[in-house]
């Protein structure tokens, strides 16, 4: 793909964001979608920006893409300002919007030819049709395509300029599992060829497998960053079983107990010891732990904890305002 990934000085991040803020509206109705974030995307890496809907991911990407100006903060893309140095930046970046559109009256091939003619150094249209497995649909009008096929045309446009930096906003949302796998293989291939990828996704297992670095956003701030392992590390493991209202007290390592309808969840910093103590206690008292499940922290547990406002390490003191299901006991999370 990218034949010359060495156009940046070594060590310089492909994207560098400092103190980015984005506010929509004015006065009393103003809403701060991005609240002062710092972000580095290392050259040649895949960085995944995760977060719930409304966390500010797309608002952040729009600034990096040069489509919107920041309310405050400093943004460098490939060492340049995405708005002031627009032409230079656009030539070297490929963007996939979360939602975009094409003229329905053009065929797939015509759509790619239209896009190709706007680029300085496009790859051949036929190559792009092959890369995205669109060959059999080349002469189909855009309005007859499925959502997944349209997304692949979109992606073909993104990659046609052979970009050094690829910015993908939810590239796999709405795709069937096979197309999703294909897209992620493509993304991994981009990195292997030396490109940098900044991607948002809702599929945590994909981010966990593919991304070199994760940035988790919540309510306009980046609350956790690191490799998938780093992010999960230090986060409590979970023991769950059918609901029991009486439990041994204390249980070694357990930092929190929650009762959710029919299930009880223990959070622990020492899974092995807590589980051993729990099983000993159950044996002694003849208690049956139905549906027992014990697991080490995964990205999903961290992510859900952040989304619920239960993340102990989150920068924001974002405790859930809606504790309908969480019943924290003494000595629980905080």
């Amino acid at each position: 793909m990218n034949t010359n990934p060495t156009t940046r000085s070594p060590g310089q991040p492909a994207v560098r964001v400092r103190g980015l803020r984005r506010t929509f509206g004015h006065g009393a109705t103003a809403f701060e979608a991005v609240r002062g974030i710092d972000l580095d995307v290392a050259a040649g890496s895949i960085t995944a920006l995760l977060g719930t809907n409304g966390a500010g991911k797309t608002s952040t990407l729009e600034v990096i893409e040069g489509l919107a100006a920041a309310t405050a903060g400093e943004i460098r893309v490939l060492g340049l300002d995405p708005i002031a140095d627009r032409a230079a930046v656009r030539r070297r970046t490929g963007v996939l919007l979360q939602r975009s559109g094409f003229s329905g009256d053009l065929t797939v091939r015509e759509t790619l030819r239209l896009w190709s003619g706007t680029l300085t150094a496009p790859r051949p249209v036929d190559d792009m049709l092959d890369l995205l497995s669109l060959g059999s649909r080349a002469d189909t009008r855009m309005l007859s395509l499925s959502g997944g096929e349209t997304r692949r045309v979109d992606l073909a446009c993104t990659l046609m300029g052979d970009p050094e930096l690829v910015i993908l906003d939810e590239p796999t949302t709405g795709l069937d599992p096979e197309s999703r796998r294909q897209v992620w293989n493509l993304v991994a291939g981009l990195r292997d060829a030396g490109s940098t990828v900044l991607v948002t996704t809702h599929y945590l297992e994909e981010a966990e497998t593919l991304a070199d670095r994760l940035e988790i956003m919540h309510r306009g701030e980046i609350v956790r960053s690191g490799t998938p392992t780093e992010i999960a590390a230090g986060h409590p493991s979970m023991i769950t079983f059918d609901r029991l209202d009486t439990l041994p007290d204390p249980l070694t390592g357990v930092t929190g107990v929650r009762h959710e309808r029919s299930r009880t969840t223990l959070e622990t910093t020492d899974l092995q010891t807590s589980l051993g103590d729990l099983l000993d206690w159950a044996d002694h008292h003849g208690v049956r732990l139905g549906g027992l499940d014990a697991r080490s922290p995964s990205l999903e547990t961290v992510f859900l904890a952040i989304a619920d406002g239960r993340d102990p390490d989150a920068v924001t003191p974002a405790r859930s305002a809606d504790p309908t299901t969480a019943v924290p006991l003494e000595g629980s999370l905080r």
């Binding site: 060495t6 156009t7 940046r8 310089q12 070297r92």
Partner: peptide, 28 residues
């Protein structure tokens, strides 16, 4: 990217002036 642009990115800006392109206009 072509070899011609294989310079540190910080110096790439002047080479890529953001001009109205008649070629792109005719194409569109």
């Amino acid at each position: 990217m072509s070899a011609a642009t294989a310079t540190p990115s910080t110096t790439a800006a002047p080479a890529a002036a953001d001009r109205f392109s008649v070629r792109r206009l005719v194409h569109l």
